[in-house]
Simulated scan of single mutants.
Amino acid sequence: MATETYVTPVAFEGYVITATVTSSGKAVEDWIQEIYSSYHRLLHKLIVGLDVEWRPSYSRVQNRVALLQLCVGRHCLIFQLLHADYIPEALEEFLDDPDFRFVDVGVQDDADRLSQDHDVDVANTEDLRQLAADGFHMPALRQSVMGANLQKPHRVRMGPWDASCLSQEQIEYACIDAFVSFEIGRKLLTGDYP
């Protein structure tokens, strides 16, 4: 099975995020090594945006998780699990590190799906809804914390996430979703908000 990796910039709300899109286990190992190197001083309290995507199913049988998105700072990984040559042990260790906090809305559901579909466990999840409720008591989570204008077109959200070649819209959606989760989690967990 041929694996592909490409790196593309994704612009969002004045930020430029570097998205690594891959089905290569080796590229995932390289991305993780880059995170360890770039954030070595924060490894005892690293915050990671986490999300997963799968092709929607219109029957009782759920499709397997197709994508894993991880974001730390301006570095986003979009790992095409269904097309991967292998799932690296380095990824399993990264996700299972109890010092790291993996954040998203409904992140435990995503972690459960990842475990069920790919036998990969996430050690420490923090649901952004709960964090926001504890700190803010605000229902409009994304806008209240970040002021983000996050558009989630239905045709992309409900699209073919299991495709071997993702569209630019899918890449942007997947990257921005993980980045916004990271940024909101960072602000809520560090108290860096207005």
Rank of each mutant, 00 (worst) to 15 (best):
V145T: 09
Q143D: 09
D119A: 14
R113P: 00
A148K: 01
D110E: 14
D121V: 13
K45E: 15
L43T: 13
A133L: 14
V7I: 13
S164E: 14
D192V: 08
V103F: 10
N149R: 10
I171R: 05
Y15F: 11
D119S: 13
F79P: 02
N149H: 10
H154D: 07
K152Y: 06
A132P: 01
H75C: 03
A163P: 01
G73A: 05
H75K: 15
H83A: 09
S38C: 12
Y173L: 06
Y36M: 13
V52N: 10
K26E: 10
D99E: 15
S59K: 06
R157Y: 08
L114W: 04
V180M: 05
Q108Y: 09
Q108C: 02
Q80H: 14
L42A: 12
H118L: 04
F79E: 03
V72A: 08
L46S: 04
A84F: 06
T18C: 06
E13N: 10
Q116T: 11
W54L: 04
E53T: 03
E29N: 10
Q143M: 07
T22C: 01
D96E: 11
D96A: 15
K152F: 06
D134T: 11
D30E: 14
V105M: 09
I47L: 04
G147L: 07
S24W: 01
I78N: 05
D104F: 11
L77Y: 03
D112K: 14
C71W: 05
A133W: 13
V7M: 04
G25R: 02
C175R: 01
D177K: 09
Q130V: 07
R60Q: 10
I17H: 01
K187A: 15
E126D: 07
Q33C: 09
H118W: 15
Y86T: 00
D112G: 08
Q116M: 11
Q151A: 12
W54S: 13
L77C: 03
S23K: 00
D51G: 09
K187W: 04
R60C: 02
L188S: 02
T125K: 11
V16H: 03
D121T: 13
M138Q: 14
L128T: 07
A163V: 02
F102Y: 10
G147D: 02
T18F: 02
P88S: 10
V10H: 02
A132R: 04
L70Y: 07
Y39E: 13
A133P: 00
A66G: 06
Y173A: 07
G191T: 08
G191N: 10
D110V: 13
T22M: 03
Y86R: 05
V61S: 11
A2M: 06
T3C: 04
V48N: 07
S115N: 14
P139D: 14
A11G: 00
E34A: 14
E183I: 01
